[in-house]
Design a protein around this nucleic acid. Sequence first.
DNA 1: TGACAAATTTGGAACGATCCAATTATCTGG
DNA 2: CCAGATAATTGGATCGTTCCAAATTTGTCA
Lengths: 348, 348
Amino acid sequence: MSRNRVTVVDIARAAGVSKSTVSLVLQASPLVNETTRARVNATIRELGYVYNRGAANLRQSASSRIIGIVVNDLTNSFFAELAVGMDMVMQSAGYVQFLSNSGESVDRQREVIASMREHGISGLILSPARGTQAADLKPLSESGIPVVAVVRNVVGAKVSTLFSDNHTGAMEAVHHLIALGHRRIAFLGGTPDTTVFTERSQGWRDALAQAGLDAPEERLIGSSASRAGGAVAIAQALALAEPPTAALCFNDAAAFGACDGLRSKGREPGRDFAVVGFDDVIEAETAVPALTTVSVDPQAMGRRAAQMLLKQINAGRVEPEAIVSSVRLVVRESCGAGRTGEEKRVSA
Amino acid sequence: MSRNRVTVVDIARAAGVSKSTVSLVLQASPLVNETTRARVNATIRELGYVYNRGAANLRQSASSRIIGIVVNDLTNSFFAELAVGMDMVMQSAGYVQFLSNSGESVDRQREVIASMREHGISGLILSPARGTQAADLKPLSESGIPVVAVVRNVVGAKVSTLFSDNHTGAMEAVHHLIALGHRRIAFLGGTPDTTVFTERSQGWRDALAQAGLDAPEERLIGSSASRAGGAVAIAQALALAEPPTAALCFNDAAAFGACDGLRSKGREPGRDFAVVGFDDVIEAETAVPALTTVSVDPQAMGRRAAQMLLKQINAGRVEPEAIVSSVRLVVRESCGAGRTGEEKRVSA
DNA sequence: TGACAAATTTGGAACGATCCAATTATCTGG
DNA sequence: CCAGATAATTGGATCGTTCCAAATTTGTCA
C-alpha cells in the first residue's frame, strides 16, 4: 500500500500551528500573518503535501471543480475539436473534466452520466446520443446541476442549449452554388433522425424554393455522416437519371467522402462537380482541393459551451438559456469558385 | 442552492434501519437479510439517493475508481482513437476518466497532472508532451500511483511503457518500397525531438543500408507531424536535384499532406509517386487513394494501455513493465502496388 | 426450555478538509 | 500602563461514507 498520505494535521504539527491555520493558508486567506504563511507553505512543499479535494467537497457548500463532458463520437474530429475547446476554458478556470464517449448509445450515456454524478460533477456538457429523452436529464436538473446541450437538441429538457445556425448556413451554401450557375443541387449524407439533419436539409430545400428551383426528394441522399457515407451517397447521386452538378454535404466528413467518390469515378471535385461541406474541421483548409464549407468552428463552440456552463455554475442557480451561434460560408476550392489565394499559404 | 442531498442516514431513517445496514446494502454485502435489502433498495430508489463516492474515498483504503488520461493532441485522430480505446476499457471496468489535452506544453501537462492528483486519481495514462522529464512523474510514482506512458518515452522514469515497434515497422515499409523497384526513397515529416521520430527514421536508414542503398540526409526532411507539414516536406523533396520516387512519411497525417502536395504539383499519389504512412488512422482506409501504411491500431493500443493500468491498480503495487506492440504493413493503393480489391468495399 | 451458534443489525469512531465562534496576541492612543 | 480595537490563531463540530467491535435476533438441538 502507498504510505499514509500527508494531511493538514501533519503540516500543522510540523509547522507548529493549528490545522485551521493551515486551512486558511491553503485558501490564500488574507487573515493569516505573512511569516506564518511562508512557514506553512515551506512545510507543505517539504512534506510533499497533496491537497485532498474530495475531503474538502464533503462540506455541502463547496463546488467540486469537476465537470462532465459526454460526446457521441470522439473519433469524429468535429467532436474532438469541440472537446479541445471545452478543455481549454475548463483548464484555465481551474476545472478538470470527466470526458467520455457515448458512441451513440443511450445506455452507455446513461451509465456514464450516473457515474459522473456519483463523483460529484458540478455541471455537464452533453452532445446527446440519438434518442436521448428529456427524462434522462431530469435527475440532473432536479438536483440543481446545470446542463448544457450542444450540437443536438433534447426535446422537452429544461437545459441550456448551444446550436449552430444550421438552417441559415445551409441556405447560404445553396445560394452560393446557385450563384455559381448550378441548377441541380443535391444534399448528401447524414441520417434523418437528428435535428441537425432536419435543419440543414430544410435549409437546402428552402434556398432552392426561394430561387424557384426544384428540390426533388431523390436528390436528398442520406447515408452515415462519415467519409465512407459520403462516398456512397455521391455514387448514388451520379447514378441518377438527371445527376446533380453540385452538392451540399451533411458535414465535412461526408464532403471528403464525396470528393473521394468523385475521384474514383474520374471526376475532379471543384472542377467537374461542386462540393460544399459543413462544419469547417481543421483539415478542410489544407485538403486538396481545399473544402468550401459552412464554418461552425467547433473549437470556438466548445469554448462557448464551457463558458455557458461556468456562468451557470457560478450563478448558483439554473437559468437555461438557448444560444444559436452564427455560421459563415468559407469559400475555398471544392465548389469551383476562383481560388482566393489567401487559402494557399500552407502548400506553398 | 440545490436542495440538501439525500444521504445514507436519510435512507436509514426512512427504511427503519441503521446507516450501517444501508452501507452494507450499497456494497451488496451478503451479510444483510434479503427482505431488508429489498426494503432499503426500494427506499433508495424512492428518495432518489445518489451515492457519494467522494465521501467513501475518504477512508484511506478504497480506490477512487478515477484515472487520468493526458494526451498531447486530441485533434490528431491518432490520439482521439487512442483515447476512445481507453475509454471503452475504463467504462466497462466501472472507472471514469479525467481526460485532458496538454497541447505539447509541459507546463500545462504538469498543471493538469497536479490537478488530477488533488482529485485522487488511482492511475494515470500519459502520452508525454515533448520535453517531459522523469522528475515530472516522480511525485506520482513516489506516492504509489501507477503510470503508463504510451506512444512516447520518458527517459529515466520508473513507469510502465507501451510503444509500437516503430523501427521494425519503418523497415518493413521501406523494404516493401524497395521490392516495388524504388531506389530513391525519402523520409518525410515529423520533428526529430521524439523517440518515435528517432526510431522510425532509423528504421528507414537501416532498411536502406541493408539493401545497399543510400540514405542521404537531404532525403530526411522534417516538418510538423501534420497534414500541412507533410505538404511542405513533399514540396521540398520534389525540389531536390535527385528527387525521390517514393517516401515513407512520419505519420498518416503527414502522408495525407504529401498526397495533397503531390496533387497540387500535378502528380497523382500511387501512380507517379509512392507514399506510405504510419499509424493507420481510420481515414487511411477510405481515403482516395487508400493509404498504404504501417498499422499501429491506436484504438487497440489504447485498450491495451488501459488494461495495463488496471492490472497495476488491482495488483496494488507498482511493477513497471515495458511492452512493445507489434505493427504490420497494410498495403493499399498509395504505394502503387496493385490494389487488392479487399479494401474497396466502402466506395463500392 | 435453555444453551449455544449462526445470522443480522447497529453505534460510534474514523477519513481530511472547512467554518464558526471563541480565544489569544498585537497595536493604538490617551 | 491600560482599555479598546484589530489582527491572528485555534478547538471542535461537521460533511457522507466505511469499518470494527459489540449487541441483538433468530435458529438448532439436546
